[in-house]
Amino acid sequence: MQNYREDSELMSVLEHASNEDIGLLIDVITDNGKGRMSLDDEVMASLINVKNLVPYPLKQTIAEEIQKFGGNSLVSVFRGGKGVLYKEIVCDVASHVGANFNEKQDVAQIESSILLKIVEKSLDKMSEEEKKDFFDQFGVRYEGVGPVAMAALIGVIRVSGFAFYKMATIVAQATAKALLGKGLTFVATGGLMRGISVFAGPVGWAITGIWTAFDLASPAYRITVPCVIQLAYMRQKALIQECPKCGAVVAKDMKFCSECGQRMSASPLLIENKTIDMDTK
């Protein structure tokens, strides 16, 4: 843990994350518990042995491993094994996949550009009907894939937190399924759930091909790319809440559920945060 570098953009997500979500990150880092070269045996053991509540120091270990693998994908031969901050990892991944970004943007924006790039690639493997479905999900009229459709999608995602969350969920779910053979744990209803199932195949296809399609030559990308996707999803998830009554997804600052009118007084996320806080003290 002595090599963990203070990294608020990484820890802010990990701190409030559910154990299931952290579990998927651990699966990525440990390759589903099968281990990786250059992953320390002790770290490996501590990561796969955690079952229930993920303690705070272990979250730092996870952050440190991500920083370290990130360091491996950058020009790191002379870095002496020191990790890099999450922002640098996100920028590196974004520039390698050819996402449209600049370094002054905040992490969430750069993450969304990466996800959009993956979505764009996934469209190759969707039927016309699926493409129409996909754009429908985001309220974008589909008239053939092209810069116009993508620009419209980008526009929606930039202004709507919920649309961003939806896209992040679809990509993260497909990534987890394609790379780990398991899905995210979450409560989602109706349209969102359907979208996730339909698109998991094509998006997963784009994910498995992303290494070669985008010249992600260093082995470290096998860890950093899925981690960035998972973290992007977790970051957005923290901004929304699920209605305790009907399970609909509602922005965190909403007072009532937009689906069933349920009062959203005590957000489940806040309760979750409290438990974690108590545990770390």
Binding site: M37, V77, A220
Partner: peptide
């Protein structure tokens, strides 16, 4: 690609 290989060497 060569750069990627060099970066992957430690691993």
């Amino acid at each position: 690609k060569l750069l990627g290989a060099l970066n992957g060497l430690p691993q």
